[in-house]
Amino acid sequence: MNRALAGLLTVFAPLSLATIGGGQATVAEIQRQVVDVHHWLTQAQFLSDFAIARLAPGPGSLMVTLIGWQVAGFWGAVVATLALFGPTAFLLYAVAYLWRRHRGALWQRALEGGLRPIAAGMIAAAVYVLFGSLEGGLAARVIALVSTALVMYTRVNALLLVLGGGGVLIGLHAAGLAG
C-alpha cells in the first residue's frame, strides 16, 4: 500500500469512531488533519470540497470521498470512504443484532427510553442551528415553515418538495422579492 493511501486510512479510520451526533462535528478535525498536518489540500481546496459536499445529495461526510480522490485518485476515494464509514458500520451491525436477540430486556428498554430525549434534543438543536444559518433571508424561512406544514399534513413527495423550494426561491429572486 502506498504512503498516501496509508495516510488516508490512519487519518479517517480513527475519526470515524469519534463521530458522534453526525458528521458535522468532525469537519473541524478533518480540516486540521488534511490542511494543517498533512498539507494534502490548501485551505481553498478544502472549503470548495466542503461546499460541494453540502450542495450534493447524500451524507455530507462524503466530503472525504472528494478529499481521497484529490489526494490519491480512485483508490484514494475508495480508501477514504471505507475508512470513514466502515469501522462504525460493524459496530452498528453488532448492536442491531444484539437488539433483536434481547428484545424487551430491561437494559434495552432503559437505553431506548433514556436515549430518546437525548436524540430529540440533538435533532431539535440541529434544526435550530440550520434554521439560523439559512441563506436567502425571510423568503427562505417562510419556505422552510411552509415545507414543514406540507410534510406534516400532506403526502407530498420529498424530492418534489425540495425541488419546489428551489424553484420558488429562484422565482421570488427573479421577481425581485428576495435578496
Binding site: L17, L92, V95
Partner: peptide, 9 residues
C-alpha cells in the same frame, strides 16, 4: 436514538 448515540455518521 441508537444511531445518534453510537459513533459513526
Amino acid at each position: 436514538s441508537i444511531s445518534q448515540a453510537l459513533p459513526g455518521v
